[in-house]
Amino acid sequence: MLVEILFYIFATLLVAGALGVITARNPVYSVLFLVFCFVNSAAIWLLVEAEFLAIVLVLVYVGAVMVLFLFVVMMLDINLAEIRQGFTRFAWLGWITALAVIAEITGVIWRNGLGGVDVGRGFVSEPANYSNTLELGRVLYTHYAYPFELAAVLLVVAIVAAIALTLRRRPGLKVQDISRQVAVRAEDRLRVVKVSAEKRS
């Protein structure tokens, strides 16, 4: 019962946050709303005992991806008025598409039901020693070992490509050379000068 109540609270907040994402006029608010959505989704995932996914969602999406989004949105100087101009011209097309999709989804559910999914079933809790992380790992490293490794190669290629395209070694740049800084000896920098004492006149 408690789980159901919590679910509805988080779900309501999630939907409200999602509406906020698309209605907020300021892109920074949109990004913050999206962060809010992610946190709520993570909470819902916790409720269905998918704690690994929940933590990853918070760590990766909220912690890294959305922060990057915020940076980009704040750094880009976007003229909102210019973008909005002419936006409403195509609004009717958006409305028609949205209504058509809603009609299709409703029609399919009306005719076929939910394809055997029992929505009234509620949450079924797993036994106490169930580990979501273990189950995920078990699938990833057996059935999906090959695609999983390929995804890893894809990330390596992305890094190599990004570095190859952006790293420039221009001459005359004032950069720190850590190994040279560490290897420096006292006599390179410090000159001890003998000054003979002078007689007070």
């Binding site: 390929l150 190669v153 894809l154 290629v157 992305a158 190599v160 490509a161 190859a164 395209l165």
Partner: peptide, 11 residues
Amino acid sequence: GVELLALSVYA
């Protein structure tokens, strides 16, 4: 496969 090939080629 499509993505691995495409990403390398874009770069």
